[in-house]
Amino acid sequence: SKDTIRINGIDIDVKDLHEEWKRLVEEALKRGDEELAIELLERALKE
């Protein structure tokens, strides 16, 4: 798994994120759902 995830052309540092969150965000991006990916990231970062 990578340490960054690219959303809207912005590389976001996710190395401190739990693997499960990372996977969910990557799944959302694979489906092209950037809005969901951002929402998941925000939730993950609050934890």
Results as ranks from 00 to 15, higher is better:
Ile12Gly: 01
Glu20Met: 10
Glu19Asp: 13
Lys15Glu: 07
Gly32Asp: 04
Ile5Asp: 02
Val25Cys: 02
Ala37Asp: 00
Arg6Ala: 05
Lys2Tyr: 12
Glu39Gly: 08
Ile7Leu: 09
Gly9Asp: 07
Lys30Leu: 11
Lys46Ser: 11
Val14Thr: 06
Lys2Met: 14
Arg43Thr: 07
Glu42Ala: 07
Lys46Gly: 09
Asp16Leu: 12
Ile7Ala: 02
Lys22Trp: 07
Arg6Gly: 04
Glu20Val: 05
Leu41Ile: 14
Gly9Glu: 05
Leu45Met: 11
Ile7Cys: 03
Ile12Glu: 01
Asp16Val: 08
Glu26Asp: 08
Leu17Arg: 01
Glu19Asn: 05
Leu29Lys: 01
Gly32Leu: 04
Glu42Lys: 10
Arg23Met: 10
Arg23Val: 13
Arg31Gly: 07
Glu47Thr: 09
Asp11Gly: 04
Ile38Val: 11
Leu45Thr: 08
Asp13Val: 12
Arg31Gln: 11
Thr4Lys: 09
Ala37Tyr: 02
Asp3Glu: 11
Arg43Phe: 04
Leu41Ser: 01
Asp33Ala: 05
Leu17Cys: 05
Asp3Tyr: 00
Arg23Trp: 06
Ile12Val: 11
Glu42Leu: 11
Glu47Phe: 01
His18Tyr: 06
Ile5Trp: 01
Glu35Arg: 14
Arg23Lys: 14
Ala44Lys: 02
Glu20Arg: 07
Asp33His: 07
Arg6Met: 09
Ser1Leu: 15
Val25Trp: 05
Arg23Pro: 09
Leu45Ile: 10
Ile5Val: 13
Leu29Gly: 00
Glu47Tyr: 00
Arg43Ala: 07
Thr4Cys: 11
Glu35Gln: 15
Ile12Lys: 04
Ile10Gly: 04
Glu26His: 10
His18Ala: 15
Arg31Trp: 11
Glu42Phe: 04
Lys30Trp: 08
Ala37Ser: 01
Ala44Met: 11
Val14Trp: 12
Glu35Tyr: 12
Ile12His: 14
Glu19Cys: 10
Leu24Trp: 06
Val14Asp: 02
Asp11Glu: 08
Leu24Met: 11
Leu41Asp: 00
Glu35Ser: 13
Leu41Val: 09
Val14Met: 12
Ile5Gly: 02
Leu40Pro: 00
Ile10Ser: 06
Asp16Gln: 11
Glu39His: 14
Ala28Ile: 03
Leu36Cys: 08
Arg31Ile: 07
Val25Lys: 00
Leu29Gln: 02
Arg6Asn: 11
Arg43Trp: 03
Asn8Phe: 03
Val25Asn: 00
Ile38Ala: 11
Leu40Cys: 03
Glu47Cys: 09
Leu45Glu: 06
Leu36Asp: 04
Val25Leu: 13
Leu29Phe: 04
Ile7Gly: 02
Thr4Phe: 09
Ala28Val: 03
Leu41Lys: 01
Ile12Leu: 07
Arg6Val: 10
Ile10His: 11
Leu36Phe: 09
Gly32Cys: 05
Asp16Thr: 12
Asp11Ala: 09
Leu36Gln: 09
Asp16Pro: 05
Ser1Met: 13
Leu41Pro: 00
Asp13Arg: 06
Ala37Lys: 00
Ile5His: 04
Ala37Gln: 00
Lys46Leu: 13
Ile10Glu: 11
Asp13Lys: 07
Gly9Arg: 03
Lys15Phe: 07
Glu35Met: 14
Lys22Cys: 08
Arg31Val: 11
Lys46Phe: 03
Lys2Val: 13
Gly32Phe: 05
Asn8Gln: 12
Leu40Tyr: 08
Glu39Ala: 13
Val14His: 03
Ala44Tyr: 11
Arg43Glu: 07
Leu40Asp: 00
Asp11Ser: 08
Ala28Cys: 05
Asp3Thr: 09
Leu36Asn: 05
Asn8Thr: 05
Leu24Cys: 07
Leu41Arg: 01
Ile10Val: 12
Asn8Lys: 14
Ile7Tyr: 01
Leu45Asn: 11
Ile7Met: 05
Asp33Ser: 05
Val14Ser: 05
Asp11Thr: 08
Glu39Ser: 14
Asp11Arg: 04
Thr4Gly: 05
Lys15His: 12
Ile7Asp: 01
Ile7Pro: 02
Glu27Trp: 01
